[in-house]
Design a protein around this nucleic acid. Structure first.
Length: 307
DNA sequence: GTTTGTTTAGTCTCGA
DNA sequence: TCGAGACTAAACAAAC
């Protein structure tokens, strides 16, 4: 497998999959999130190969963004007009390329909790499923408490502050190609996992929703503004903290007959206010036709990411 | 009309 | 050989 070169790959196809290219682009940005057009731009800037046949590879890239759970979509705020959403990396996609190949991952990064829960539901009584989910929630939440202090930090979302970190995201461009490139505009790229405190600041609405989402799943039936599944992440057999990711507000849900009310860490229960991923201002959602501050719930269950 | 996002389907490649 | 991941093409809908 060719190693990343020192310079651009001229007209040769770079030895990176679209996933790694996209991840590079996202990682190269201090905010760790980019709109599609910027991802295109990043790739074309660095890899001349992709200046041709743009239709083809851009379609593939979009397909990858949608198809792969390792990418999460972040809606624009209403006061940030523009097309499309921002794209970021799922916090647990870190070691997909652990084997050193940026063309082929060890295993596809996938969010499976809902499927698992549904399968479980299909195979057992509802009460069993509720118990199962409750156990999962406990496991993740306890692991969350245990691991959160060891997890990597990233730059705040557009807070203008790069937080110090020793962790290097495998997708960080400095880890992939920064050996070869100087990344303009990211002097202190400190690699990329959105952590809870930062996410809470950046996406309070998500966390708010998330808190709601784990409340008794009788739920309010609508899919409001920030309806997005709460995705806990379980990584390589290891349980990691949950990050809410607004991928697909699918109505797929698994209602817990007994009501699932795990203990929610304090950092998840931020009030609904301020910051958005891209601006230190009031967060509202473009996707929400409703009043900011209004709590919407997403009747989804926690999910598990498996590798 | 263009861009963005989702989905489906088929093919190719690689690793076990 | 087979399964899984990657790539490509295409259709379609929604947002801008």
């Amino acid at each position: 497998m060719p190693r990343p070169g020192r310079n651009t790959y001229s007209d040769q196809k770079p030895p990176y999959s679209y996933i790694s290219l996209t991840a590079m682009a996202i990682q190269s940005c201090p905010e760790k999130m980019l709109p599609l057009s910027e991802i295109y731009k990043f790739i074309m800037d660095r890899f001349p190969y992709y200046r041709d046949n743009t239709q083809r590879w851009q379609n593939s890239l979009r397909h990858n963004l949608s198809f792969n759970d390792c990418f999460i979509k972040i809606p624009r705020r209403p006061d940030q007009p523009g097309k499309g959403s921002f794209w970021a990396l799922h916090p647990s996609c870190g070691d997909m390329f652990e084997n050193g190949s940026f063309l082929r991952r060890r295993k596809r990064f996938k969010v499976m909790m809902i499927m698992a829960a549904q399968e479980h539901l299909a195979q057992s009584k509802l009460s069993d499923a509720a118990h199962y989910l409750q156990q999962q929630a406990k496991l993740r939440l306890s692991a969350l408490a245990a691991t959160s202090t060891h997890l990597p930090q990233i730059s705040s979302y557009n807070l203008g502050v790069s937080q110090p970190s020793t962790f290097k995201h495998p997708f960080a461009i400095e880890n992939i190609i920064a050996r070869e490139f100087k990344v303009p505009g990211s002097p202190s790229m400190s690699a990329g996992y959105p952590m809870h405190n930062q996410l809470t600041a950046a996406w309070p609405h998500m966390y708010n929703t998330m808190v709601d989402s784990v409340s008794p799943i009788s739920m309010r039936g609508d899919y409001g503004a920030f309806s997005m599944p709460l995705k806990s992440v379980c990584h390589g057999g290891q349980t990691l903290p949950a990050i809410p990711v607004p991928i697909k507000p699918t109505p797929t849900l698994v209602a817990l007959p007994g009501g699932l009310t795990p203990h929610i860490p304090a950092f998840l229960s931020n009030s609904y206010q301020s910051l958005s991923p891209t601006s230190p201002q009031t967060a509202t959602s473009r996707s929400s036709p409703s009043t900011p501050g209004e709590t919407h719930t997403n009747p989804t269950v926690q999910s598990v990411v498996v590798h």
